[in-house]
């Protein structure tokens, strides 16, 4: 059942409407009363979650008898951004994922944010699916703030992602959807995978299976589940950042999600005018490349790769 979560009038004969698709299981013999929310599309240039929402909706719609509880799917928290290939909300300066929990006394965007929080609040689990931006490709991963790691890691393991990145807390992140929901007791997992403006079906299929596995573990799903892989957890491991030191075109030589040794080549930056190599980019540590640059033009400082180091690098 399609429901409106938030709505506001746009200038000319149109409303912005944030919708969700609610699936209520018909397995009424043992109603769990549980609710899981799957949300995506805060950033309008991140589309990987579109595929997951569509696929999950299709599975649930055809198997309601196997569902015990409620699954709410929110495919587009920033519908105008997705529609216009805009990362933020058009005509609004701030990143939508920096205005939560919102306020009903604020701008239109802040009012929408408050309505979204109100609607998701109280769910047993919320999964917030992000892609990377257009510049970087990410391996499927769950990102968890260190202050909620103990509580969330057991659920994150159920999602079938390659690894779980437990990152340090930062004040600026306190205005994200995930932080806001976790701070009011609604457990929220952030998934990052793929690249902006594209859909990687392999990753989407895997995450959909992972969400069904999570539902099964919560006692909400009686259908078949594919086994999920055991993720690597970043705790006690260093994450190495590789930034370009030069401006030019980045040509990768290392493969995404491959092992690399300290000093091995990640790629090179070349000058498009002269053809000269401006920089040979190398890995700062032994590990696995979980982030790799997708967009070729770089300035000094552009992120080239992130390397998940071994335990010895902690």
């Amino acid at each position: 059942m399609i429901e409106e979560v938030a709505k506001a009038g746009l200038s000319v004969n149109e409303n912005i409407v944030i919708k969700k698709n609610r699936y209520v299981g018909s397995d009424s013999k043992n109603p769990s009363g549980k609710r899981v929310c799957v949300v995506t599309g805060i950033h309008g240039d991140e589309l990987e979650g579109q595929y997951v929402c569509a696929k999950l909706a299709n599975v649930l719609q055809n198997n309601l008898a196997l569902l015990n509880g409620t699954v709410d799917i929110y495919p587009a928290l920033n519908p105008l951004g997705i529609d216009s290939i805009t990362r933020g909300i058009p005509l609004f300066d701030l990143d939508m994922n920096r205005i939560f929990p919102g306020t009903n006394d604020g701008t239109m965007a802040e009012c929408l944010a408050a309505d979204i929080i109100s609607d998701i609040s109280g769910a047993d689990i919320c999964i917030d699916i992000h892609s990377s931006n257009i510049y970087l490709r990410e391996i499927p991963q769950v990102r968890i703030n260190e202050i909620t790691a103990d509580e969330l890691v057991p659920y994150a393991k159920m999602l079938g992602c390659d690894f779980i990145w437990i990152h340090a807390s930062a004040t600026v992140l306190e205005s994200t959807l995930a932080y806001s929901l976790n701070s009011i007791g609604t457990k929220t997992l952030v998934v990052e995978m793929g690249v902006g403006m594209r859909i990687t079906c392999e990753y989407g299929d895997r995450l959909t299976d992972g969400i069904l596995n999570l539902l099964k573990n919560l006692g909400m799903w009686k259908g078949e589940c594919k086994p999920v892989k055991e993720p690597i957890i970043s705790a006690d491991r260093a994450v190495g950042f590789v930034n370009s030191g030069a401006a030019g075109i980045f040509i990768p030589s290392a493969k995404h999600w491959s092992h690399i040794k300290s000093g091995d080549a990640v790629g090179k930056v070349i000058d498009p005018v002269t053809g000269n190599v401006e920089e040979y980019v190398t890995s700062p540590c032994d590990g696995i490349i979980f982030t790799l640059r997708e967009y070729p033009i770089v300035y000094g400082g552009s992120l080239i790769a992130r390397i998940l180091g071994g335990e010895e690098n902690a």
Partner: peptide, 26 residues
């Protein structure tokens, strides 16, 4: 353009900056 030419980030959301970080952090 209002924000940074290539990645649309805001220099005034990058302080105190990081000299080994991304372009606008630098």
């Amino acid at each position: 353009k209002r924000f940074w030419t290539m990645d649309n980030t805001d220099i005034n959301r990058m302080f105190p900056g990081y000299d080994l970080g991304e372009t606008t952090q630098r």
